[in-house]
Write a protein that binds this DNA or RNA. Structure first.
Lengths: 233, 233
DNA sequence: TCACTATGTGAACGAATGTTTACCCGAAGG
DNA sequence: CCTTCGGGTAAACATTCGTTCACATAGTGA
């Protein structure tokens, strides 16, 4: 159980924006994406509309006919651009992961090399990655579970890599006494890594730009929270 | 985005236990449930099998025929016990919430009245509620989003109540200087409440009783982590 | 001009969906 | 003994699903 009750931007609401409007929100997140640059404009429209519908009602409840109807196309037209629904979802999920991973890597590169600064940079970037396009983050997180088996496993690996990166950061930082993890450096690093990732990633579920502070302000709070969790000094 | 990569008990795996075996796991969580006591044994079998299948492949991807076939029944038999699939899911989700809410309320009652003890008790009970039957917790959390509109809203309210309880606890504790919240007592309480709930509730996603420590040991760690987040002294 | 490719269409495919209907049986109660 | 009824069935309901097929149209490069 769990969400939290902080439901503001929640799915399947009657007062939610129309799919067409929301599709544009997703389309904006496509700008400058290397993987998506090769796609035709029609394919990108299908992708954006799929994202809006997947976000609104879940990929399982969204039919190909839903997608193509919203695009003003016939169902068969989708197959000119994608092999099927699973591939559409896969492209979206990959896009979301690309964004996040690039952002985190960039932040770690740009920060001072000491563990405390690195942890703060990681948490900050990780939260930012969930707040600049919260809808995309939610979509990815909820729907990657329903990918076909091989694609699902590929995504699991990508997620695991990110977690291992954070855990290693915490472990070495604990050994050099920059952190005071609740448990030892080993078990503690794993646990705290999960705490930080879980806590930060959920921000996309309730974040509402009209009611909450600016993304980087909120990300600052989460970065200092991560330092508290790690017992940084 | 977000899960974390700590996927151990994850859904839709080929090496996952058979639905029949897993149904028994869910059935064990039904014991002593007041709401479910009135149900016939056949209804409980349907419920347990539904839980196993919902957990394994999602409620949207589980057909009534799937459920009844696994129970050795005809599709029509389900309608002797439930109004439809939505009601089956609703009963399961309510059951999960009942368990958690009762556990948290009991823990708060049994703990010392000072804010620090209350917060620790809340976090401990909240984590325990997610670890004694992690499958049920995962099921509830993933699938309540797909309930019919009115039932979905009812569940949202129940979740919000729990969050408000924790926020109030943090707010008054901050005013009495027991906590040092990152922000002021107001904005800080909301934020820290979300951090604690989000962090704790995700435990059910990766917890594996064969690889991790005992539930109450892990809950202890999360309780002290919550105290760190709140800046308790 | 001609072939080609990209992008679209309508119609159909078989399979699966949630649900309803009419019917059946075995046990409990008067 | 006969009725009632909870719990079960088979069969059919109208939809919807993802996908494929044969075909149309438009622009492009040779």
């Amino acid at each position: 159980m769990s969400d939290n009750g902080a439901v503001s931007t929640s799915p399947a609401k009657s007062d939610a924006p129309l799919p067409a409007d929301q599709a544009e929100v997703f389309a904006r997140s496509f700008e400058g994406a290397s993987d998506l640059a090769a796609l035709s404009s029609a394919a990108r429209r299908v992708l954006a509309m799929s994202a809006a519908l997947f976000y609104r009602q879940g990929a399982a409840a969204t039919s190909i006919r839903d997608i193509t109807r919203a695009c003003g196309l016939s169902p068969a037209a989708l197959y000119n651009h994608f092999a099927g629904k699973d591939e559409v979802l896969y492209v979206l999920v990959c896009h979301g992961h690309d964004r996040l991973e690039r952002r985190v890597a960039g932040a770690l590169d740009g920060a001072a090399p000491d563990p405390v600064a690195q942890l703060a940079a990681f948490a900050h970037a990780y939260v930012m990655g969930h707040l600049v396009h919260p809808e995309l983050a939610q979509l990815v997180r909820r729907e990657y579970l329903h990918l076909s088996r091989p694609r699902y496993q590929e995504i699991v690996l990508r997620r695991r890599r990110l977690r291992d990166q954070l855990r290693e950061l915490l472990r070495t930082g604990a050994q050099s006494k920059h952190f005071d993890l609740i448990d030892g450096p080993d078990a503690g690093a794993t646990r705290v890594a999960l705490m930080v990732l879980d806590m930060c990633s959920r921000t996309s579920e309730w974040y509402d730009p009209t009611r909450n502070e600016a993304p980087d302000e909120l990300a600052d709070h989460y970065a200092t929270a991560a330092l508290r969790l790690a017992g940084a000094h």
